[in-house]
């Protein structure tokens, strides 16, 4: 069975960042593979290693994002498609979903896997948008996947517990990083990745017909999070500080 995995290059949230004139200033060298997408790749690899099949990673992004596609190949994906953008555009989830929908229009596959959200924006929209545009059944926030004959069983984290869902093929799943522990590419994997096929497509050649109206949301500016007033640290005899704080929670905060 063929699995497509949609992956995104995102800024590392642990890297230092600054806000200048309402804009975010980050170190462009500290971009990484979205953590949730690393889990999607891992899951597709585990399934295809056990049952046969192939894994293709698809990434939309500027030239520089190719390093992230290479990482997916180094982990073990068989091939990749890079849809190249100029990097200056401000696409939102809707626009990315529409580009992906155009790419998938004439493709055949068992399942498309996405991350449940982008680690930098936490939007969590692209996957289900893409499913709706392609008219595919889907499941989000998957914490487990199992291939059974011609369909998969998704374990998803829902509001009241974990829902076990049978999903017909072709279908789409968005993955949580609670699903697995993604492998670190081995040296051999990195060497092999250099010979793996990457299909590079210019966004303009895809004819996705992305217009202004497809970016439906705009970021106006970035702001610092309001700081919390620093509280007090209690050090000393455990017995004493424990009783003291318990008292304060009652008398000062009235939360007991």
């Amino acid at each position: 069975m063929k699995f497509y995995v949609c992956i995104k290059q995102v800024p590392d949230v642990n890297a230092p960042l600054q806000i200048k004139d309402g804009q975010l200033v980050q170190d462009a060298d500290r971009n990484i593979l979205n953590a949730y997408d690393a889990s999607s790749i891992e899951e597709a690899l585990v399934i295809t290693e056990a049952h046969g099949g192939e894994v293709e990673a698809v990434l939309i992004g500027p030239e520089k994002a190719k390093e992230t596609l290479r990482k997916a190949l180094a982990m073990g994906a068989d091939s990749g498609t890079h849809i190249v953008t100029s990097g200056d555009e401000h696409y939102d989830s809707f626009a990315y979903a529409k580009i992906l929908a155009t790419f998938f229009k004439d493709k055949e596959y068992g399942y498309i896997l996405c991350g449940k959200q982008s680690q930098d924006t936490d939007s969590g929209l692209t996957g289900s948008m893409l499913a709706e545009m392609l008219n595919l059944p889907y499941s989000t926030n998957a914490v487990g996947l199992e291939l059974k004959d011609d369909h998969i069983v998704v374990k998803r984290q829902g509001d009241t517990g974990q829902e076990m869902i049978e999903l017909a093929s072709p279908g789409l799943v968005t993955c949580s990083n609670d699903m697995n522990d993604p492998r670190i590419p081995s040296l051999k994997g990195i060497m092999q990745s250099k010979r793996k096929p990457v299909n590079t497509v210019a966004l303009s050649d895809l004819n996705a017909g992305i217009s202004e109206a497809d970016t439906k949301t705009n970021i106006l500016s970035f702001e610092e999070k309001p700081e919390r007033e620093p509280g007090k640290k209690y050090e000393g005899e455990p017995e004493e500080i424990a009783r003291q704080v318990a008292q304060l929670l009652d008398t000062e905060e009235n939360v007991i």
Binding site: L17, L24, I219, L220, F222
Partner: peptide, 9 residues
């Protein structure tokens, strides 16, 4: 955004 490190308008 950014793991809730900052706020975006």
């Amino acid at each position: 955004v950014m793991a809730s490190k900052i706020i975006s308008a």
